[in-house]
Each structure stands twice: as structure tokens, then as C-alpha cells.
Design a protein around this nucleic acid. Structure first.
Length: 563
RNA sequence: GCCCCUGUAGCUCAGUGGAUCAGAGCAGCGGCCUCCGGAGCCGUGUGCGCGAGUUCGAGUCUCGCCAGGGGUACCA
């Protein structure tokens, strides 16, 4: 159990004991909470409960605080309990208990930080899901960094997590893409074929055209143009999806499943979901199109589900994004029975949130099972100048280039350090220059430094075997232990709020506290009189190393033995 | 017009469901290498966009305003 919850339990008991003793009047049991106070002098944990209880208890807050403090049952984790104005009860953990946590952390090893949830949920994190018509840019990199880190965090929080990439292979973009490839293909065969006005201009499309001209000769010129465009579009998507997988792997982002949008239409999932909407009279025909009566549900306007054949002839292009979304949420929650479906979407999709939730309700599903994490845009700059990013024109800095320039660890770290709600200004010049001073290296350095200490110890023939953690009483040692104990709380916070940015901030703090400890406390001492302390400190730094490694790995960042 | 996000130190940003909230990193300045990695440590800071409101108490909640970004298609 988290020490925080253990203390909350003590507070609960203190209320009951104080009431029994007549120190507090009877009142209904309140929701007890314990928080981390801001200043060290206020202890490790505190509760402002007396301030909240003042009305119900008909007493001054400070008086309640004193009554509670006096009735907290003894506990070996608690060193000191103090009532403080204007109405707080502060807890300081006992030094002996803190020291013992080193052994506890070592016993947990790589599992340290994991939580046991009240209920283990089956959670799907669907992220990136970028249009498979070209290389990834930095914005979708942010998506992947956020999504993958969230998935890691939820797993650590004790849930059953599946990571999915949704392949948008059913829209008109597939056709546009196919037309562009066809043009390049025909050009490669010496035909005078123009790239469509709004076609994809990237060099990779030229490469694809050449490649298939070489591989298939004029095969695609012999079939109908429609057929050729469709087939080349699909081939192109397969190639791009494979390269997206490579790029993501470079960032240490892996998926369990890749789900095709087209399959939702081909296997009848959409038809099934549509039927449910139709049965409720929420679907109507107008101007040849099939509409979702969103207005009847309080939305701003009705939405097209299937476009009119007068506008779009190609059947693959007729369902809109919303149609697929509805089929997809049905697939996630009803067919695959995820308790939670987490979507990681860029800010440009925020307008779709309300519609998706409305559709979810109408499908008879609990909208609380859908969680949408919206992240704001990444502005890429070079030397202060904004770099325009457009897939159509091909003028963008790809994620691959960024990883090449800055390094995968620094990229991942930078992409999640800022809260998803903030736009991210990414200056390439600064990023490259900064990579030496990037906080990620600060954290990694702490890990490598410990590896070096452990190596030094091994070379000197000392080990932590039999180390007595009770010898860890130096303020810097206790400070380090306190910092390590925060990891599970950070995981809980990040998992509950779906906010991965707490992790890098914690890592920087933990590394700083370690470096400070390192300066103050010699670990491997050559003085024989220090032998016992050395063994204890070796345990301490090994625990710190586990904690740092865990923090880094949750972010998908390496924990190196050497820099 | 309407909807969403943001505005905190020179810069980039943290700050849980109000109270014991003003913080970190970088940049700058000044110190610290005679046993473990100086990619480090220690010191140094008159800043919460503006104005009201709610409260015992507001970066934090409510409303209005200003500024920046995004959305508002039979595009995805």
C-alpha cells in the first residue's frame, strides 16, 4: 500500500478515536485526503482536513487539528505528527522506516513503482494513427511519445494495456495518394502524366513510382485507370505503414495491433453500428447522402456519414471520418470489450470529441469508457523561423530527420516534458545545441554514475551483501530515499490524469537529489572503518539506480551504464 | 460569430479535486576537481496578461477583456 494511503487510514482512525474520547463531536465520516506539502518543515505529508471539517465539527480548524494529531494511532512509519495553524496535521516519516524502504525497493527490483489497482482494467491506448500517405512529422511524434508513455504508465498502474495504431486506409486521401503515385509511375515509364494539382509532391512518391515501374513495368497502364489508382494507392499505403513502423521503432514506440479502417467497413462493423443509430431514428437521407441527426442530440449541426454518390463515385471514399469513428468505437467497446478506450488526438480533432461521445452514448455505451487526450500543436522552428509543415508540398522536417539530428532519447524526452495542453515550440537549432545540456542527459548521467560506482565497488572487492540499511541516517541519504518513494505516487498521478509529463519532471528531480547526495556522501570508501557504511550505501545507490531506470524506461528512454 | 488550448523569472516550462504557492531547468554571475564520472555540486531571483467576483483564503474557481495557437467541409 502506498504510504500516502496508509497515512490517510491513520487519519481516519484518528477521527474515530478523537470522537470516542470526546475530543471531537460526532459528524459523518468525511472523505479523507493526504497531500505532499510544499515545504520540508511541514513534513512529508499533510492534511488540510481540519479546515474542511470546521463547519461540520463546529470547532476552530486548529483545535480540530490538535485533536486529530493527539489521536493518531502509533505507527512505525510515522516519526512525528504535528498540528499547525491554520488547520493542518503534518506527518514526518520516521528515519528508521525510511531506511528500511531501501531493502523494500531492492526486493521489488524492476517492479518498483508498480501499483495494484482496485480493479484491473482492460485498456486500449490508440495513438499516432497518422495518415499513412507520407513520412511522420514532429507533431505525430508528439502523439507517439505521449501515447506510448501513457501506455507504459497505465501498465505500471496495474492495467492490461493494448497499444493500437489505426490505419486510415479508407478515405479520399487514399485515392489522392494513389493518383499521385500513378502520375509518378507513368512519368517513370516516359508518359506525359501530370501530378494532380493537390497531389503529394514529396520525393518519396517519385521513388515509389520509379520502383513500381521497374518492378511491374506497364502493368498498371494496361488496367483501367481507376483500378490502377486504387491498387497503387493501397500498395503505397502498405509501404508507408511499414516505414512508419520503422520510424516509431527508432523512437522505441511499439504497437500490439494495427487496425485497418477499411476492415471496419468490409467486415460489417459499420453496418452494425449504423443499424443501432437507424433504429433510434437518428439517421436520415438528404441530397443523396446519409446523415447522422446530431442536432437532435444537442450538437451544433447534423453530420454526414455516407457521402452522396453524386459527389463521390468511389465506394471506399463515401463513408466519412465520423462513420468510421462510430464503427471504431463500437469495435473497441462492444466487440472487443475494452473497459477503456484512450484516444490520443491532436488539437485539430478537438471538434470531433463531442460528436464521438454523442455517438458513443447513442450506441448504448458508457461515454466514460472513452478518454480522449488532446495535445496541442508542435511548432517547429529553425533559427527562430517557423518551418512550415505540409505533407502535400513535401516541405517538412520528418521525425526521422529529427531523431537523426537530436537523438531518440532526447526527442522522446522533449516531446513529453511539456504538458499536452501546451503548444510545443521546437527550435531545431536549439534542440541540437541543447542536446548536450538536455535534461534527459542529466537524468541518464545519474544512472550511469551509479553504474560506475557499482563497477568501482566490484573492482575493489566490496559488495552490498549484508549491508545494514539502518546505518543510512545522513540527511542526504534520507532525502534520496524520500525521493525514490515518490515514484509510485507519480505513476498514480500520471495514470489517473493521463498526464505523462509528470514523469520527466520527476526524473529531473530525482537525478538532482541523487547528484547532491553523491557530492555529500562517499559511497565506496577506502577507509576500512567505513566498510559497514559502504555496504549500506551500495544498497542505497542500487535502489536509486532501479528507480532512475524505471523512470527512464517508462518514458521509453534508455538507462545507460555509460554515457 | 461560436468552440477548444495557452498567457507564471531574460528563455523553455512545472505547479492534483482552493488553504502551508511562488518553483525547476537553461542562460548570467560567484565559488567547489589531492579515494566513486565536473555531462556534477554549492550560492545568487522585487515574475503568476488585465479587471471584477466567490471565499476565512485564488497562478489555481466564476465572469468579462486583451494577446497567441487550433477548430468550425458530402477533407481526414
Amino acid at each position: 500500500m502506498l504510504i500516502k494511503n496508509q497515512l490517510a487510514e491513520l487519519v481516519k482512525q484518528a477521527i474515530a478515536r478523537a470522537q470516542t474520547a470526546g475530543a471531537l463531536p460526532a459528524f459523518p465520516a468525511p472523505a479523507v485526503f493526504v497531500e505532499r506539502p510544499q515545504k520540508k518543515e511541514w513534513g512529508d505529508f499533510s492534511t488540510a482536513l481540519p479546515l474542511k471539517l470546521a463547519r461540520a465539527a463546529q470547532r476552530a480548524p486548529l483545535q480540530i487539528a490538535q485533536a486529530l494529531a493527539a489521536h493518531v494511532p502509533p505507527d512505525d512509519a510515522v516519526g512525528r505528527v504535528e498540528a499547525r495553524a491554520p488547520g493542518f496535521v503534518n506527518f514526518t516519516l520516521s528515519d528508521a522506516w525510511l531506511a528500511r524502504q531501501v531493502d523494500a525497493i531492492l526486493a521489488e527490483g524492476a517492479r518498483f513503482g508498480n501499483l495494484q489497482p482496485e480493479r484491473r482494467l482492460k485498456i486500449q491506448v490508440e495513438h499516432v494513427s497518422v495518415n499513412p500517405t507520407g513520412p511522420m512529422h514532429v507533431g505525430s511524434g508528439r502523439n507517439g511519445a505521449i501515447g506510448d508513455t501513457l501506455a507504459n504508465i497505465l501498465q505500471a498502474a496495474g492495467h492490461d494495456v493494448q497499444r493500437e495504431f489505426y490505419i486510415n486506409d479508407n478515405g479520399s486521401q487514399v485515392r489522392h495518394f494513389g493518383e499521385s503515385i500513378f502520375a509518378r509511375y507513368a512519368q517513370a515509364l516516359g508518359r506525359d502524366e501530370k501530378l494532380p494539382a493537390d497531389g503529394y509532391q514529396g520525393g518519396y512518391v517519385v521513388e515509389m513510382g520509379k520502383h513500381w515501374a521497374q518492378q511491374h513495368g506497364d502493368r498498371f497502364l494496361k488496367m483501367s485507370r481507376d483500378q490502377a489508382v486504387r491498387e497503387l494507392g493501397r500498395l503505397g499505403i502498405d509501404v508507408v505503414v511499414a516505414s512508419l513502423r520503422e520510424t516509431l521503432l527508432r523512437m522505441n514506440v511499439r504497437f500490439d495491433t494495427w487496425l485497418s479502417e477499411r476492415s471496419l467497413h468490409e467486415d460489417g462493423t459499420f453496418a452494425q453500428a449504423l443499424k443501432i443509430l437507424q433504429d433510434q431514428g437518428l439517421v436520415f437521407e438528404k441530397d443523396g447522402a446519409t446523415w447522422f441527426a446530431a442536432q437532435a442530440l444537442g450538437e451544433a449541426k447534423d453530420e454526414v456519414l455516407i457521402r452522396s454518390p453524386q459527389v463521390i463515385a468511389e465506394p471506399d471514399e463515401r463513408p466519412t471520418y465520423l462513420a468510421s469513428d462510430i464503427a471504431y468505437v463500437w469495435n473497441k467497446l462492444a466487440l472487443r470489450e475494452f473497459d477503456r478506450a484512450i484516444y490520443v488526438w491532436g488539437a485539430d480533432h478537438h471538434g470531433d470529441v463531442a460528436r464521438l461521445l454523442a455517438a458513443t452514448r447513442v450506441l448504448g455505451l458508457d461515454e466514460k469508457r472513452v478518454r480522449i487526450v488532446i495535445y496541442q500543436f508542435v511548432t517547429l522552428r529553425r533559427g527562430g523561423e517557423a518551418v512550415r509543415m505540409s505533407k502535400r508540398t513535401g516541405e517538412f522536417v520528418t521525425l526521422d530527420e529529427l531523431i537523426e539530428e537530436v537523438g531518440p532519447d532526447a526527442v522522446r524526452f522533449m516531446l513529453i516534458t511539456q504538458s499536452a495542453n501546451s503548444t510545443l515550440d521546437f527550435d531545431l537549432d536549439v534542440a541540437v545545441k541543447q542536446s548536450e545540456e538536455n535534461p534527459v542527459y542529466y537524468v541518464q548521467y545519474a544512472h550511469a554514475r551509479i553504474a560506475s560506482i557499482l563497477k568501482k565497488a566490484a573492482e575493489s572487492g566490496v559488495s552490498s551483501a549484508g549491508g545494514d540499511v539502518a546505518l543510512l541516517t545522513h540527511p542526504a541519504e534520507l532525502e534520496l530515499i524520500r525521493a525514490m518513494l515518490r515514484l509510485p505516487e507519480i505513476i498514480e498521478l500520471a495514470a489517473t490524469k493521463l498526464e505523462p509529463h509528470h514523469l520527466p519532471h520527476y526524473g529531473i528531480e530525482l537525478a538532482g537529489i541523487f547528484h547532491s547526495f553523491y557530492k555529500q556522501c562517499r559511497v565506496v570508501s577506502s577507509d576500512p572503518a567505513d566498510a559497514a557504511l559502504t555496504r549500506a550505501r551500495l544498497k542505497l545507490v542500487a535502489a536509486a539506480q532501479h528507480t532512475l531506470a524505471r523512470t527512464l524506461n517508462l518514458m521509453g528512454v534508455r538507462a545507460p551504464e555509460t554515457m
